[in-house]
Design a protein around this nucleic acid. Structure first.
Lengths: 283, 283
DNA sequence: CGCAAGTTTGACGCTGCTCAATCACTGTGG
DNA sequence: CCACAGTGATTGAGCAGCGTCAAACTTGCG
Protein backbone atom coordinates (compact mmCIF):
# COMPACT_ATOMS: atom_id res chain seq x y z
CA UNK A 1 0.00 0.00 0.00
CA UNK A 2 1.23 3.45 -0.82
CA UNK A 3 0.02 6.37 1.22
CA UNK A 4 -0.20 8.67 -1.77
CA UNK A 5 -2.78 6.58 -3.56
CA UNK A 6 -6.29 7.73 -3.79
CA UNK A 7 -8.40 4.67 -4.26
CA UNK A 8 -11.80 6.25 -4.66
CA UNK A 9 -13.32 6.16 -8.13
CA UNK A 10 -11.75 8.99 -10.00
CA UNK A 11 -14.39 11.59 -10.73
CA UNK A 12 -12.00 14.18 -12.06
CA UNK A 13 -13.38 16.57 -14.61
CA UNK A 14 -10.52 15.59 -16.91
CA UNK A 15 -11.67 12.59 -18.98
CA UNK A 16 -8.08 11.50 -19.53
CA UNK A 17 -7.57 11.25 -15.79
CA UNK A 18 -10.83 9.38 -15.43
CA UNK A 19 -9.90 6.94 -18.12
CA UNK A 20 -6.36 6.26 -16.91
CA UNK A 21 -7.53 6.07 -13.33
CA UNK A 22 -9.86 3.31 -14.36
CA UNK A 23 -6.95 1.04 -15.17
CA UNK A 24 -4.17 2.17 -12.86
CA UNK A 25 -4.88 4.07 -9.65
CA UNK A 26 -3.39 7.55 -9.84
CA UNK A 27 -2.08 9.65 -7.02
CA UNK A 28 -3.02 13.28 -6.57
CA UNK A 29 0.28 14.59 -7.87
CA UNK A 30 -0.01 12.43 -10.95
CA UNK A 31 -3.45 13.76 -11.68
CA UNK A 32 -2.14 17.24 -11.15
CA UNK A 33 0.60 16.65 -13.69
CA UNK A 34 -1.97 15.55 -16.23
CA UNK A 35 -4.16 18.55 -15.50
CA UNK A 36 -1.12 20.72 -16.02
CA UNK A 37 -0.55 19.08 -19.38
CA UNK A 38 -4.12 19.79 -20.41
CA UNK A 39 -4.20 23.38 -19.35
CA UNK A 40 -4.22 24.80 -22.88
CA UNK A 41 -6.57 22.86 -25.10
CA UNK A 42 -7.33 24.15 -28.56
CA UNK A 43 -10.83 24.57 -29.92
CA UNK A 44 -11.58 22.78 -33.17
CA UNK A 45 -14.68 22.92 -35.29
CA UNK A 46 -16.57 19.92 -36.63
CA UNK A 47 -15.36 18.96 -40.07
CA UNK A 48 -11.84 20.31 -39.68
CA UNK A 49 -8.75 18.13 -39.64
CA UNK A 50 -5.96 17.55 -37.16
CA UNK A 51 -3.64 15.80 -39.62
CA UNK A 52 -3.86 14.47 -43.13
CA UNK A 53 -2.59 11.29 -44.65
CA UNK A 54 0.91 12.02 -45.95
CA UNK A 55 1.57 14.80 -43.44
CA UNK A 56 4.48 14.60 -41.09
CA UNK A 57 2.99 14.20 -37.63
CA UNK A 58 3.91 17.02 -35.26
CA UNK A 59 2.17 16.19 -32.05
CA UNK A 60 -0.03 13.81 -30.17
CA UNK A 61 -3.69 14.60 -29.64
CA UNK A 62 -5.62 14.22 -26.45
CA UNK A 63 -9.38 14.63 -26.65
CA UNK A 64 -10.94 16.59 -23.81
CA UNK A 65 -14.38 17.01 -25.33
CA UNK A 66 -15.86 15.99 -28.65
CA UNK A 67 -15.15 13.22 -31.09
CA UNK A 68 -12.50 12.70 -33.73
CA UNK A 69 -12.03 9.88 -36.20
CA UNK A 70 -9.04 8.29 -37.86
CA UNK A 71 -9.73 7.30 -41.43
CA UNK A 72 -8.20 6.21 -44.69
CA UNK A 73 -9.46 7.09 -48.11
CA UNK A 74 -9.44 5.35 -51.49
CA UNK A 75 -8.99 7.06 -54.83
CA UNK A 76 -12.60 6.28 -55.72
CA UNK A 77 -13.73 8.35 -52.77
CA UNK A 78 -14.61 5.50 -50.44
CA UNK A 79 -13.60 6.11 -46.87
CA UNK A 80 -12.94 3.67 -44.06
CA UNK A 81 -13.02 4.96 -40.52
CA UNK A 82 -10.31 3.17 -38.58
CA UNK A 83 -11.09 4.32 -35.08
CA UNK A 84 -12.80 6.98 -33.03
CA UNK A 85 -11.09 9.24 -30.54
CA UNK A 86 -13.56 9.89 -27.74
CA UNK A 87 -13.12 12.23 -24.76
CA UNK A 88 -10.19 10.93 -22.73
CA UNK A 89 -8.65 9.15 -25.71
CA UNK A 90 -5.19 9.90 -26.97
CA UNK A 91 -3.79 9.39 -30.45
CA UNK A 92 -0.88 7.04 -31.05
CA UNK A 93 2.12 8.27 -29.05
CA UNK A 94 4.62 6.36 -31.17
CA UNK A 95 3.57 8.25 -34.23
CA UNK A 96 6.49 10.63 -33.83
CA UNK A 97 8.77 7.94 -35.19
CA UNK A 98 7.38 8.03 -38.69
CA UNK A 99 7.54 10.83 -41.18
CA UNK A 100 4.31 10.25 -43.01
CA UNK A 101 0.88 9.67 -41.58
CA UNK A 102 -0.80 6.70 -43.21
CA UNK A 103 -4.22 7.96 -42.15
CA UNK A 104 -5.98 11.22 -41.46
CA UNK A 105 -7.58 12.49 -38.28
CA UNK A 106 -10.65 14.68 -38.50
CA UNK A 107 -13.19 16.12 -36.11
CA UNK A 108 -16.66 14.61 -35.99
CA UNK A 109 -17.87 17.33 -33.64
CA UNK A 110 -16.65 20.57 -32.21
CA UNK A 111 -13.94 19.57 -29.80
CA UNK A 112 -11.34 20.64 -27.28
CA UNK A 113 -8.07 18.96 -28.11
CA UNK A 114 -4.73 19.13 -26.34
CA UNK A 115 -1.80 19.12 -28.75
CA UNK A 116 1.13 17.48 -27.02
CA UNK A 117 4.65 17.35 -28.43
CA UNK A 118 5.85 13.77 -28.23
CA UNK A 119 8.71 14.78 -25.95
CA UNK A 120 6.31 16.05 -23.31
CA UNK A 121 4.43 12.79 -23.12
CA UNK A 122 7.66 10.88 -22.74
CA UNK A 123 8.80 13.22 -19.99
CA UNK A 124 5.54 12.69 -18.18
CA UNK A 125 5.80 8.94 -18.51
CA UNK A 126 9.39 8.93 -17.31
CA UNK A 127 8.46 10.88 -14.22
CA UNK A 128 5.35 8.86 -13.46
CA UNK A 129 5.64 5.15 -14.18
CA UNK A 130 2.01 4.58 -13.33
CA UNK A 131 1.03 7.03 -16.01
CA UNK A 132 3.32 5.28 -18.45
CA UNK A 133 1.69 2.02 -17.60
CA UNK A 134 -1.80 3.42 -17.93
CA UNK A 135 -1.01 5.02 -21.27
CA UNK A 136 0.42 1.76 -22.51
CA UNK A 137 -2.65 -0.15 -21.43
CA UNK A 138 -4.81 2.43 -23.18
CA UNK A 139 -2.80 1.88 -26.35
CA UNK A 140 -3.28 -1.85 -26.03
CA UNK A 141 -7.01 -1.36 -25.66
CA UNK A 142 -7.08 0.79 -28.77
CA UNK A 143 -5.34 -1.90 -30.74
CA UNK A 144 -7.70 -4.51 -29.39
CA UNK A 145 -10.58 -2.32 -30.50
CA UNK A 146 -9.18 -2.24 -34.01
CA UNK A 147 -9.02 -6.03 -34.02
CA UNK A 148 -12.62 -6.16 -32.90
CA UNK A 149 -13.61 -3.79 -35.70
CA UNK A 150 -11.92 -6.00 -38.24
CA UNK A 151 -13.92 -8.93 -36.89
CA UNK A 152 -17.03 -6.79 -36.99
CA UNK A 153 -16.64 -5.66 -40.58
CA UNK A 154 -15.34 -8.98 -41.82
CA UNK A 155 -17.69 -11.46 -40.21
CA UNK A 156 -20.90 -9.91 -38.94
CA UNK A 157 -24.13 -8.99 -40.69
CA UNK A 158 -25.11 -5.39 -41.22
CA UNK A 159 -27.54 -5.27 -38.32
CA UNK A 160 -24.99 -6.76 -35.97
CA UNK A 161 -22.27 -4.37 -37.07
CA UNK A 162 -24.32 -1.35 -36.17
CA UNK A 163 -25.48 -2.91 -32.91
CA UNK A 164 -21.94 -3.85 -31.97
CA UNK A 165 -20.66 -0.38 -32.64
CA UNK A 166 -23.34 1.14 -30.42
CA UNK A 167 -22.49 -1.26 -27.60
CA UNK A 168 -18.82 -0.43 -27.85
CA UNK A 169 -19.34 3.31 -27.91
CA UNK A 170 -21.67 3.09 -24.94
CA UNK A 171 -19.08 1.15 -22.96
CA UNK A 172 -16.28 3.54 -23.83
CA UNK A 173 -18.28 6.66 -23.07
CA UNK A 174 -19.39 5.15 -19.81
CA UNK A 175 -15.78 5.11 -18.59
CA UNK A 176 -15.61 8.88 -18.90
CA UNK A 177 -19.08 9.44 -17.52
CA UNK A 178 -20.81 10.51 -20.70
CA UNK A 179 -23.73 8.11 -20.49
CA UNK A 180 -26.78 9.39 -18.67
CA UNK A 181 -29.02 7.33 -16.45
CA UNK A 182 -31.25 6.25 -19.31
CA UNK A 183 -28.44 4.70 -21.37
CA UNK A 184 -28.56 7.72 -23.57
CA UNK A 185 -25.63 9.60 -25.03
CA UNK A 186 -24.59 12.12 -27.66
CA UNK A 187 -23.58 10.39 -30.87
CA UNK A 188 -22.16 12.98 -33.27
CA UNK A 189 -22.22 10.66 -36.25
CA UNK A 190 -24.10 10.96 -39.49
CA UNK A 191 -25.38 7.82 -41.13
CA UNK A 192 -22.61 8.33 -43.66
CA UNK A 193 -20.08 8.15 -40.83
CA UNK A 194 -21.70 5.00 -39.51
CA UNK A 195 -21.57 3.54 -43.00
CA UNK A 196 -17.89 4.33 -43.43
CA UNK A 197 -17.21 2.79 -40.05
CA UNK A 198 -19.04 -0.45 -40.65
CA UNK A 199 -18.22 -0.96 -44.32
CA UNK A 200 -21.78 -0.37 -45.52
CA UNK A 201 -23.69 2.26 -47.47
CA UNK A 202 -25.55 5.04 -45.74
CA UNK A 203 -28.83 3.79 -47.19
CA UNK A 204 -28.36 0.40 -45.70
CA UNK A 205 -27.35 1.86 -42.37
CA UNK A 206 -30.61 3.74 -42.49
CA UNK A 207 -32.56 0.50 -42.93
CA UNK A 208 -30.72 -1.18 -40.09
CA UNK A 209 -31.42 1.79 -37.82
CA UNK A 210 -35.07 1.57 -38.70
CA UNK A 211 -35.11 -2.07 -37.75
CA UNK A 212 -33.39 -1.39 -34.45
CA UNK A 213 -35.91 1.35 -33.76
CA UNK A 214 -38.86 -0.78 -34.80
CA UNK A 215 -37.66 -3.55 -32.53
CA UNK A 216 -37.49 -1.04 -29.68
CA UNK A 217 -33.77 -1.62 -29.15
CA UNK A 218 -32.72 1.97 -29.67
CA UNK A 219 -34.23 5.38 -30.14
CA UNK A 220 -32.66 8.47 -31.62
CA UNK A 221 -33.42 12.10 -31.04
CA UNK A 222 -31.46 15.21 -31.90
CA UNK A 223 -28.12 13.49 -32.23
CA UNK A 224 -28.59 11.47 -29.08
CA UNK A 225 -28.83 7.73 -29.08
CA UNK A 226 -30.71 5.88 -26.38
CA UNK A 227 -30.19 2.19 -25.95
CA UNK A 228 -33.53 0.85 -24.81
CA UNK A 229 -32.44 -2.71 -24.20
CA UNK A 230 -28.71 -3.06 -23.80
CA UNK A 231 -28.90 -6.76 -23.10
CA UNK A 232 -30.84 -7.59 -26.24
CA UNK A 233 -28.69 -5.30 -28.34
CA UNK A 234 -25.49 -6.83 -27.00
CA UNK A 235 -26.86 -10.32 -27.55
CA UNK A 236 -27.81 -9.50 -31.10
CA UNK A 237 -24.39 -8.03 -31.77
CA UNK A 238 -22.41 -10.72 -30.00
CA UNK A 239 -20.84 -7.97 -27.96
CA UNK A 240 -18.45 -8.85 -25.17
CA UNK A 241 -16.71 -5.90 -23.58
CA UNK A 242 -13.63 -7.80 -22.40
CA UNK A 243 -11.51 -6.46 -25.23
CA UNK A 244 -11.92 -2.91 -24.00
CA UNK A 245 -10.12 -3.71 -20.73
CA UNK A 246 -12.29 -1.10 -19.12
CA UNK A 247 -13.16 -3.01 -16.00
CA UNK A 248 -10.57 -1.70 -13.65
CA UNK A 249 -6.94 -2.60 -12.99
CA UNK A 250 -5.45 -5.82 -14.19
CA UNK A 251 -3.16 -7.90 -11.99
CA UNK A 252 0.44 -6.80 -11.93
CA UNK A 253 3.02 -8.80 -13.84
CA UNK A 254 6.58 -9.38 -12.70
CA UNK A 255 8.40 -9.31 -16.01
CA UNK A 256 7.56 -5.87 -17.16
CA UNK A 257 9.66 -2.94 -18.14
CA UNK A 258 7.10 -0.61 -16.70
CA UNK A 259 6.07 -1.58 -13.23
CA UNK A 260 3.72 0.03 -10.84
CA UNK A 261 4.35 -0.91 -7.29
CA UNK A 262 0.82 -1.46 -6.16
CA UNK A 263 -1.99 -3.61 -7.34
CA UNK A 264 -5.32 -1.92 -7.38
CA UNK A 265 -8.82 -3.20 -7.48
CA UNK A 266 -11.90 -2.39 -9.51
CA UNK A 267 -13.58 0.78 -8.45
CA UNK A 268 -17.11 -0.41 -9.06
CA UNK A 269 -19.36 1.02 -11.66
CA UNK A 270 -18.72 4.42 -13.04
CA UNK A 271 -21.01 7.08 -11.72
CA UNK A 272 -22.47 9.24 -14.41
CA UNK A 273 -21.87 12.94 -14.66
CA UNK A 274 -23.59 15.46 -16.82
CA UNK A 275 -21.93 15.56 -20.18
CA UNK A 276 -20.19 18.48 -21.70
CA UNK A 277 -20.81 20.39 -24.85
CA UNK A 278 -20.56 17.83 -27.60
CA UNK A 279 -21.93 18.66 -31.00
CA UNK A 280 -25.16 16.80 -31.57
CA UNK A 281 -25.07 14.97 -34.88
CA UNK A 282 -28.04 14.58 -37.09
CA UNK A 283 -30.21 11.51 -37.38
CA UNK B 1 29.41 8.21 -38.94
CA UNK B 2 30.06 5.39 -36.58
CA UNK B 3 32.84 2.95 -37.33
CA UNK B 4 30.90 -0.02 -36.04
CA UNK B 5 28.13 0.31 -38.53
CA UNK B 6 27.87 -2.09 -41.35
CA UNK B 7 26.03 -0.31 -44.09
CA UNK B 8 25.83 -3.08 -46.63
CA UNK B 9 22.41 -4.64 -47.17
CA UNK B 10 21.98 -7.10 -44.37
CA UNK B 11 21.97 -10.58 -45.81
CA UNK B 12 22.00 -12.35 -42.47
CA UNK B 13 20.38 -15.75 -42.36
CA UNK B 14 18.24 -14.49 -39.49
CA UNK B 15 15.09 -12.95 -40.96
CA UNK B 16 14.58 -10.81 -37.87
CA UNK B 17 17.99 -9.25 -38.42
CA UNK B 18 17.21 -8.75 -42.08
CA UNK B 19 13.94 -7.09 -41.30
CA UNK B 20 15.20 -4.78 -38.57
CA UNK B 21 18.29 -3.96 -40.60
CA UNK B 22 16.02 -2.76 -43.35
CA UNK B 23 14.77 0.08 -41.19
CA UNK B 24 17.66 0.87 -38.86
CA UNK B 25 21.23 -0.07 -39.71
CA UNK B 26 22.56 -2.60 -37.22
CA UNK B 27 26.11 -3.05 -36.06
CA UNK B 28 27.78 -6.43 -35.90
CA UNK B 29 27.45 -6.70 -32.14
CA UNK B 30 23.77 -5.89 -32.34
CA UNK B 31 23.21 -8.59 -34.87
CA UNK B 32 25.17 -10.98 -32.71
CA UNK B 33 22.93 -10.19 -29.75
CA UNK B 34 19.88 -11.01 -31.83
CA UNK B 35 21.41 -14.22 -33.08
CA UNK B 36 22.13 -15.11 -29.47
CA UNK B 37 18.48 -14.50 -28.62
CA UNK B 38 17.39 -16.81 -31.43
CA UNK B 39 19.70 -19.66 -30.66
CA UNK B 40 16.99 -21.97 -29.35
CA UNK B 41 13.96 -21.85 -31.57
CA UNK B 42 11.17 -24.35 -31.01
CA UNK B 43 9.68 -26.45 -33.75
CA UNK B 44 5.94 -26.19 -34.20
CA UNK B 45 3.67 -28.15 -36.47
CA UNK B 46 1.10 -26.70 -38.80
CA UNK B 47 -2.29 -26.46 -37.16
CA UNK B 48 -1.01 -26.17 -33.60
CA UNK B 49 -1.43 -23.08 -31.47
CA UNK B 50 0.93 -20.74 -29.70
CA UNK B 51 -1.72 -19.12 -27.50
CA UNK B 52 -5.47 -19.14 -27.26
CA UNK B 53 -7.92 -16.35 -26.68
CA UNK B 54 -8.42 -16.08 -22.93
CA UNK B 55 -4.97 -17.47 -22.09
CA UNK B 56 -2.57 -15.44 -20.05
CA UNK B 57 0.29 -14.60 -22.41
CA UNK B 58 3.64 -15.97 -21.27
CA UNK B 59 6.09 -14.91 -23.91
CA UNK B 60 6.64 -13.07 -27.12
CA UNK B 61 6.98 -14.98 -30.38
CA UNK B 62 9.56 -14.39 -33.05
CA UNK B 63 9.08 -16.24 -36.33
CA UNK B 64 12.25 -17.65 -37.85
CA UNK B 65 10.60 -19.78 -40.50
CA UNK B 66 7.00 -20.51 -41.35
CA UNK B 67 3.78 -18.58 -40.97
CA UNK B 68 1.48 -17.94 -38.04
CA UNK B 69 -1.80 -16.09 -37.89
CA UNK B 70 -3.59 -14.08 -35.22
CA UNK B 71 -7.32 -14.57 -35.29
CA UNK B 72 -10.55 -14.06 -33.42
CA UNK B 73 -13.50 -16.37 -33.47
CA UNK B 74 -17.25 -15.91 -33.16
CA UNK B 75 -19.62 -18.26 -31.36
CA UNK B 76 -21.14 -19.25 -34.68
CA UNK B 77 -17.78 -20.56 -35.81
CA UNK B 78 -16.82 -17.71 -38.09
CA UNK B 79 -13.21 -16.73 -37.85
CA UNK B 80 -11.50 -13.46 -38.70
CA UNK B 81 -7.77 -13.51 -39.26
CA UNK B 82 -6.35 -10.31 -37.80
CA UNK B 83 -2.78 -10.54 -39.04
CA UNK B 84 -0.08 -12.86 -40.29
CA UNK B 85 3.25 -13.39 -38.62
CA UNK B 86 5.79 -14.03 -41.38
CA UNK B 87 9.44 -14.99 -40.98
CA UNK B 88 11.17 -12.11 -39.20
CA UNK B 89 7.95 -10.90 -37.61
CA UNK B 90 7.49 -10.62 -33.88
CA UNK B 91 4.26 -10.72 -31.91
CA UNK B 92 3.17 -7.76 -29.81
CA UNK B 93 5.80 -7.06 -27.17
CA UNK B 94 3.43 -5.14 -24.95
CA UNK B 95 1.23 -8.13 -24.57
CA UNK B 96 2.87 -8.96 -21.25
CA UNK B 97 0.85 -6.18 -19.68
CA UNK B 98 -2.49 -7.89 -20.05
CA UNK B 99 -3.70 -11.03 -18.41
CA UNK B 100 -5.99 -12.33 -21.09
CA UNK B 101 -5.30 -12.67 -24.78
CA UNK B 102 -8.13 -11.22 -26.85
CA UNK B 103 -7.09 -13.28 -29.84
CA UNK B 104 -5.42 -16.59 -30.62
CA UNK B 105 -2.20 -17.29 -32.48
CA UNK B 106 -1.93 -20.45 -34.55
CA UNK B 107 0.51 -21.92 -37.02
CA UNK B 108 -0.36 -21.89 -40.71
CA UNK B 109 2.69 -23.98 -41.54
CA UNK B 110 5.38 -25.91 -39.76
CA UNK B 111 7.53 -23.25 -38.18
CA UNK B 112 10.55 -22.41 -36.10
CA UNK B 113 9.53 -19.96 -33.41
CA UNK B 114 11.62 -18.30 -30.74
CA UNK B 115 9.76 -17.93 -27.46
CA UNK B 116 11.07 -14.86 -25.72
CA UNK B 117 10.16 -13.83 -22.18
CA UNK B 118 9.13 -10.20 -22.22
CA UNK B 119 11.96 -9.27 -19.87
CA UNK B 120 14.57 -10.49 -22.33
CA UNK B 121 13.27 -8.31 -25.12
CA UNK B 122 13.29 -5.30 -22.84
CA UNK B 123 16.83 -6.04 -21.76
CA UNK B 124 17.90 -6.25 -25.36
CA UNK B 125 16.20 -3.01 -26.22
CA UNK B 126 17.73 -1.23 -23.23
CA UNK B 127 21.20 -2.32 -24.24
CA UNK B 128 20.76 -1.52 -27.92
CA UNK B 129 18.71 1.60 -28.62
CA UNK B 130 18.86 0.97 -32.34
CA UNK B 131 17.19 -2.37 -31.82
CA UNK B 132 14.57 -0.73 -29.65
CA UNK B 133 13.93 1.77 -32.38
CA UNK B 134 13.73 -0.91 -35.04
CA UNK B 135 11.35 -3.03 -32.99
CA UNK B 136 9.17 -0.03 -32.39
CA UNK B 137 9.06 0.80 -36.06
CA UNK B 138 8.16 -2.80 -36.81
CA UNK B 139 5.29 -2.54 -34.35
CA UNK B 140 4.11 0.62 -36.03
CA UNK B 141 4.18 -1.10 -39.39
CA UNK B 142 2.13 -3.97 -38.00
CA UNK B 143 -0.48 -1.58 -36.76
CA UNK B 144 -0.53 0.21 -40.08
CA UNK B 145 -1.05 -3.14 -41.75
CA UNK B 146 -4.07 -3.78 -39.60
CA UNK B 147 -5.50 -0.41 -40.62
CA UNK B 148 -4.95 -1.32 -44.24
CA UNK B 149 -6.73 -4.63 -43.72
CA UNK B 150 -9.70 -2.84 -42.24
CA UNK B 151 -9.81 -0.64 -45.31
CA UNK B 152 -9.46 -3.71 -47.48
CA UNK B 153 -12.28 -5.67 -45.89
CA UNK B 154 -14.52 -2.68 -45.42
CA UNK B 155 -14.27 -0.91 -48.75
CA UNK B 156 -12.89 -3.06 -51.52
CA UNK B 157 -14.53 -5.65 -53.77
CA UNK B 158 -13.77 -9.31 -53.41
CA UNK B 159 -11.34 -9.43 -56.32
CA UNK B 160 -9.45 -6.43 -55.04
CA UNK B 161 -9.23 -7.82 -51.53
CA UNK B 162 -7.49 -10.96 -52.68
CA UNK B 163 -5.23 -9.03 -55.03
CA UNK B 164 -4.31 -6.56 -52.31
CA UNK B 165 -3.46 -9.31 -49.88
CA UNK B 166 -1.16 -10.96 -52.42
CA UNK B 167 0.63 -7.68 -53.09
CA UNK B 168 1.14 -7.08 -49.40
CA UNK B 169 2.44 -10.56 -48.69
CA UNK B 170 4.81 -10.33 -51.63
CA UNK B 171 6.20 -7.03 -50.35
CA UNK B 172 6.64 -8.32 -46.83
CA UNK B 173 8.29 -11.56 -47.87
CA UNK B 174 10.58 -9.65 -50.16
CA UNK B 175 12.11 -7.86 -47.17
CA UNK B 176 13.28 -11.17 -45.74
CA UNK B 177 14.34 -12.55 -49.10
CA UNK B 178 11.62 -15.12 -49.56
CA UNK B 179 10.57 -14.08 -53.05
CA UNK B 180 12.35 -15.79 -55.89
CA UNK B 181 13.35 -14.16 -59.15
CA UNK B 182 10.04 -14.96 -60.85
CA UNK B 183 7.92 -13.19 -58.24
CA UNK B 184 7.02 -16.56 -56.84
CA UNK B 185 6.75 -17.53 -53.19
CA UNK B 186 5.41 -20.15 -50.81
CA UNK B 187 1.92 -19.26 -49.63
CA UNK B 188 0.88 -21.70 -46.93
CA UNK B 189 -2.76 -20.62 -46.96
CA UNK B 190 -5.86 -22.60 -47.77
CA UNK B 191 -8.69 -20.87 -49.53
CA UNK B 192 -10.49 -21.05 -46.22
CA UNK B 193 -7.67 -19.05 -44.65
CA UNK B 194 -7.85 -16.52 -47.45
CA UNK B 195 -11.58 -16.29 -46.92
CA UNK B 196 -11.23 -15.72 -43.19
CA UNK B 197 -8.64 -13.05 -43.89
CA UNK B 198 -10.64 -11.11 -46.43
CA UNK B 199 -14.10 -11.51 -44.93
CA UNK B 200 -15.41 -13.74 -47.72
CA UNK B 201 -16.43 -17.37 -48.16
CA UNK B 202 -13.98 -19.96 -49.43
CA UNK B 203 -16.19 -20.57 -52.47
CA UNK B 204 -16.07 -16.98 -53.46
CA UNK B 205 -12.34 -16.82 -52.90
CA UNK B 206 -12.12 -19.73 -55.29
CA UNK B 207 -13.99 -17.80 -57.96
CA UNK B 208 -11.80 -14.76 -57.53
CA UNK B 209 -8.66 -16.89 -57.79
CA UNK B 210 -9.97 -18.38 -60.99
CA UNK B 211 -10.51 -14.93 -62.41
CA UNK B 212 -7.01 -13.83 -61.43
CA UNK B 213 -5.63 -16.97 -63.05
CA UNK B 214 -7.75 -16.55 -66.17
CA UNK B 215 -6.58 -12.98 -66.50
CA UNK B 216 -2.97 -14.21 -66.27
CA UNK B 217 -2.27 -12.13 -63.18
CA UNK B 218 -1.26 -15.02 -60.97
CA UNK B 219 -0.57 -18.72 -61.15
CA UNK B 220 -0.57 -21.29 -58.38
CA UNK B 221 1.26 -24.54 -58.09
CA UNK B 222 1.88 -26.77 -55.09
CA UNK B 223 1.30 -24.11 -52.52
CA UNK B 224 3.37 -21.55 -54.34
CA UNK B 225 1.93 -18.37 -55.72
CA UNK B 226 3.48 -16.64 -58.70
CA UNK B 227 2.55 -13.09 -59.47
CA UNK B 228 2.68 -12.82 -63.25
CA UNK B 229 2.02 -9.13 -63.49
CA UNK B 230 2.69 -7.28 -60.29
CA UNK B 231 1.93 -3.92 -61.79
CA UNK B 232 -1.50 -4.92 -63.06
CA UNK B 233 -2.31 -6.75 -59.85
CA UNK B 234 -1.29 -3.78 -57.73
CA UNK B 235 -3.27 -1.44 -59.95
CA UNK B 236 -6.33 -3.61 -59.68
CA UNK B 237 -6.00 -3.80 -55.90
CA UNK B 238 -5.17 -0.15 -55.36
CA UNK B 239 -2.06 -1.31 -53.56
CA UNK B 240 0.44 1.24 -52.32
CA UNK B 241 3.24 -0.17 -50.22
CA UNK B 242 3.96 3.00 -48.27
CA UNK B 243 2.12 1.77 -45.20
CA UNK B 244 4.56 -1.11 -44.79
CA UNK B 245 7.46 1.30 -44.20
CA UNK B 246 9.69 -1.32 -45.78
CA UNK B 247 11.72 0.98 -47.94
CA UNK B 248 14.71 1.53 -45.77
CA UNK B 249 15.43 3.90 -42.91
CA UNK B 250 13.29 6.89 -42.22
CA UNK B 251 14.76 10.24 -41.31
CA UNK B 252 15.68 10.65 -37.68
CA UNK B 253 13.48 12.79 -35.49
CA UNK B 254 14.71 15.07 -32.73
CA UNK B 255 11.93 14.68 -30.18
CA UNK B 256 12.07 10.98 -29.60
CA UNK B 257 12.53 8.94 -26.53
CA UNK B 258 14.46 6.38 -28.48
CA UNK B 259 17.19 7.88 -30.58
CA UNK B 260 19.73 6.27 -32.76
CA UNK B 261 22.79 8.38 -33.31
CA UNK B 262 23.19 7.89 -36.99
CA UNK B 263 20.97 8.41 -39.93
CA UNK B 264 21.07 5.66 -42.46
CA UNK B 265 20.08 5.48 -46.04
CA UNK B 266 18.17 3.03 -48.15
CA UNK B 267 20.08 -0.14 -48.86
CA UNK B 268 18.72 -0.62 -52.34
CA UNK B 269 16.57 -3.50 -53.33
CA UNK B 270 16.65 -6.64 -51.32
CA UNK B 271 18.57 -9.41 -52.97
CA UNK B 272 16.73 -12.68 -52.93
CA UNK B 273 18.03 -15.73 -51.18
CA UNK B 274 16.80 -19.27 -51.46
CA UNK B 275 13.93 -19.75 -49.10
CA UNK B 276 13.87 -22.12 -46.23
CA UNK B 277 11.64 -25.02 -45.45
CA UNK B 278 8.18 -23.54 -45.30
CA UNK B 279 5.21 -25.82 -45.43
CA UNK B 280 3.61 -25.63 -48.84
CA UNK B 281 -0.10 -24.98 -48.49
CA UNK B 282 -2.67 -26.49 -50.75
CA UNK B 283 -4.34 -24.79 -53.67
C1' DC C 1 -6.41 -48.19 -49.98
C1' DG C 2 -9.58 -45.23 -48.02
C1' DC C 3 -10.45 -41.41 -45.22
C1' DA C 4 -9.97 -36.46 -44.33
C1' DA C 5 -9.33 -32.03 -45.79
C1' DG C 6 -9.45 -28.89 -49.23
C1' DT C 7 -10.78 -27.46 -54.07
C1' DT C 8 -13.87 -26.75 -57.79
C1' DT C 9 -18.19 -25.94 -59.94
C1' DG C 10 -23.06 -24.92 -60.55
C1' DA C 11 -27.68 -23.40 -59.19
C1' DC C 12 -30.14 -20.44 -56.46
C1' DG C 13 -31.37 -16.68 -53.57
C1' DC C 14 -30.46 -13.31 -50.01
C1' DT C 15 -27.95 -9.35 -48.33
C1' DG C 16 -26.71 -5.24 -49.32
C1' DC C 17 -25.53 -1.84 -53.25
C1' DT C 18 -27.12 1.44 -56.91
C1' DC C 19 -29.99 4.76 -58.62
C1' DA C 20 -33.42 8.02 -57.92
C1' DA C 21 -36.75 10.83 -55.80
C1' DT C 22 -38.51 13.16 -51.80
C1' DC C 23 -38.38 15.12 -47.34
C1' DA C 24 -36.43 17.49 -43.20
C1' DC C 25 -33.36 20.56 -41.17
C1' DT C 26 -30.09 24.40 -40.85
C1' DG C 27 -27.65 28.22 -42.13
C1' DT C 28 -27.30 32.20 -45.43
C1' DG C 29 -28.23 36.27 -48.02
C1' DG C 30 -31.41 39.58 -49.68
C1' DC D 1 -38.76 37.40 -42.69
C1' DC D 2 -38.53 34.43 -46.48
C1' DA D 3 -36.35 32.11 -50.44
C1' DC D 4 -32.76 29.23 -51.31
C1' DA D 5 -29.00 26.06 -51.06
C1' DG D 6 -26.60 22.45 -48.87
C1' DT D 7 -26.42 18.49 -46.13
C1' DG D 8 -28.26 14.58 -44.45
C1' DA D 9 -32.35 11.26 -43.70
C1' DT D 10 -35.74 8.40 -45.72
C1' DT D 11 -37.87 5.37 -48.87
C1' DG D 12 -38.61 2.37 -52.93
C1' DA D 13 -37.43 -0.43 -57.03
C1' DG D 14 -34.24 -3.22 -59.17
C1' DC D 15 -30.31 -5.92 -59.37
C1' DA D 16 -25.57 -7.60 -58.58
C1' DG D 17 -22.20 -9.35 -55.61
C1' DC D 18 -21.56 -12.65 -52.73
C1' DG D 19 -23.28 -16.34 -49.54
C1' DT D 20 -25.59 -20.87 -49.19
C1' DC D 21 -26.27 -25.44 -50.46
C1' DA D 22 -24.95 -29.43 -52.75
C1' DA D 23 -22.22 -32.50 -55.30
C1' DA D 24 -18.16 -34.04 -57.48
C1' DC D 25 -13.25 -34.09 -57.60
C1' DT D 26 -8.35 -33.90 -56.11
C1' DT D 27 -4.63 -34.45 -52.99
C1' DG D 28 -2.16 -35.71 -48.81
C1' DC D 29 -1.67 -39.02 -45.35
C1' DG D 30 -2.26 -42.95 -41.95
Amino acid sequence: MQPLLIRAPDQSANPFVRKLGRVVPLAAHERAAIDQLCRNPRQHARGTSLVHEGDRPQSIFLMLTGWAHCYKQLENGRRQIISYLLPGDISDIRVGSIDKMDHSIGLLSDAEVVHIPAAEIFTLMDRFPRIERAVMLAALAREATMREWLLNVGQRFALQRVAHLFCEVRARLSVVGLIDDKNSFALPLSQIDLADTTGMTAMHVNRMLRRLRNDKLISTHKGRLTILSLETLAGLAGFNKDYLHADGPVAEKPNLKVLSSVSGHGSGDCAEIGERRVYAGIF
